[in-house]
Structures are given as structure tokens and as C-alpha cells.
């Protein structure tokens, strides 16, 4: 039976329709999860926290969205070891919620950057591991991954570094583009796999990543 993937919507989320389509394209069934509602872990097999500008990125990126009701359910779901994926703003929300290590800061250039970026997988042996290099678009103003050296060592030792940029676009510590939680079921990345689903988009490497859900 097809897996059901929950797609979270906050006020201001704007990549929700895109990831919804992408999840269905790889053969899963997508289901909306509204920010004011809680959900039961049996309703979905996986959750995506999509990109966009929840609450306009006001105060701190992801900070206001991290406080919403739906995130209580996402946290419970994650604690059960179920797969959760945060993309761009969703990554920021998961970091604010402390479901992922680190924090995302303003790009070194101080500006929003939209471009295609090459990524190399680091973590080799977990639910979210992908085999080969991929190419996804990035589109963010605050995507510089930061973590202090002690914690960097810890996530590195624990194989929590998921993806690295081949050509660091934003000043991320250690070129990190995506990380995993300690248990490796929660993943977050700044690049947008849902914008790389067809050759006409400029690449289709997003398919293999989203197929991890199946």
C-alpha cells in the first residue's frame, strides 16, 4: 500500500504545494497537516516540513512556526523514530524546535542566493543516506549552517552530517548542507529537492531523495 506522507502548512509556507506534488510523483500519498491541528502518529508514515517563509521569517527564521500545535505532534512522531524531513525553512523550524542540531544564520554575502548547488552525501548508512552526488537548487537568505566546534565534532563522530556542498555558497561550517538527528530519523537540508524532479527543471535528483520515504 502506498505510504502516506504528511505535509505541514504554517501561515507563510510557500513550498507546500511543490513538495505535495513531488511526494505524489514518487508514488506516495500526500496529506496536509495544518499548523493549528495536532495529528495522530498512525495517520501518516512520514512527515515533511516544507520550505517557504513561515511567519515571514520574522523574529528568527522558523522560531514562530516552531511554537505551533502541529509541531507538538511532529515532535512526538519523531520521538517514535518515524521519518521527518525538513527542507529550507522546514530545516530552520526543526532546528528551532531542537529536533536537529545547529542553527541557520544569514548567508556570508548578507544576501538571498538562488542557484543550483552540487551536494555530496556524507552519512553512509542510515534511513536518509543517498548513494551518489546530487544537484539541487538552493534559495535562501539565512542558510549558513552553524554549530560550535564541540558539537561539530560530536555530530561528525556520530555520523550525523548528511550532505555537504561541493562549492559552499553561504559560509556553512564545514560545508554542511544537511544534518540528521542522533537517531538518524529526522533530516534537514537547505537545498530544495522538490525543485529537481524533472529534467526540464534542470535536474531530477530530487526523485531519489524523496524515494527514501517509500
Amino acid at each position: 500500500m502506498a505510504k502516506t506522507i504528511g505535509v505541514v502548512r504554517f501561515l507563510g509556507t510557500n513550498c507546500d504545494e511543490d513538495i505535495y506534488k513531488a511526494v505524489e510523483q514518487v508514488g506516495a500519498k500526500a496529506k496536509w497537516l495544518w499548523y493549528q491541528d495536532s495529528f495522530n502518529e498512525a495517520e501518516v508514515d512520514g512527515v515533511v516540513v516544507p520550505g517557504g517563509f513561515s511567519y515571514g521569517d520574522y523574529l528568527r527564521c522558523g522560531a514562530l512556526a516552531a511554537k505551533s500545535t502541529v509541531m507538538d505532534s511532529v515532535e512526538e512522531f519523531a520521538k517514535k523514530g518515524k521519518p521527518v524531513l525538513g527542507i529550507c525553512n522546514g530545516f530552520q523550524v526543526l532546528c528551532e524546535r531542537k529536533l536537529l542540531p545547529g542553527v541557520l544564520l544569514k548567508n556570508d554575502s548578507g544576501k538571498f542566493i538562488d542557484q543550483w548547488s552540487g551536494l555530496t552525501p556524507v552519512s553512509k548508512d542510515s534511513f536518509w543516506s543517498i548513494k551518489a552526488d546530487v544537484k539541487f537548487p538552493i534559495a535562501h537568505g539565512e542558510g549558513k549552517f552553524f554549530i560550535d566546534s564541540e558539537n561539530l565534532k560530536s555530530i561528525s563522530d556520530n555520523d550525523q552530517i548528511w550532505l555537504k556542498y561541493s562549492d559552499n555558497p553561504n559560509g556553512s561550517v564545514s560545508d554542511i548542507a544537511g544534518v540528521l538527528n542522533k537517531e538518524k530519523n529526522v533530516a534537514g537540508l537547505m537545498p530544495h529537492p522538490e525543485r529537481a524532479m524533472h529534467d526540464w527543471m534542470g535536474g531530477s535528483d530530487g526523485v531519489s531523495l524523496l524515494e527514501r520515504f517509500l
Binding site: Y55, G56, Y58, L59, L64, K67
Partner: peptide, 14 residues
């Protein structure tokens, strides 16, 4: 103050 407005509404809802 668009930021203040957004933060206020989140605090009020809480």
C-alpha cells in the same frame, strides 16, 4: 510594524 504584528498574533494565540 509587520514583524511586531506577526509576533503579537502568535503570543495572543498562545
Amino acid at each position: 510594524d509587520s514583524q511586531g504584528r506577526a509576533v503579537q498574533s502568535v503570543l495572543e494565540k498562545a
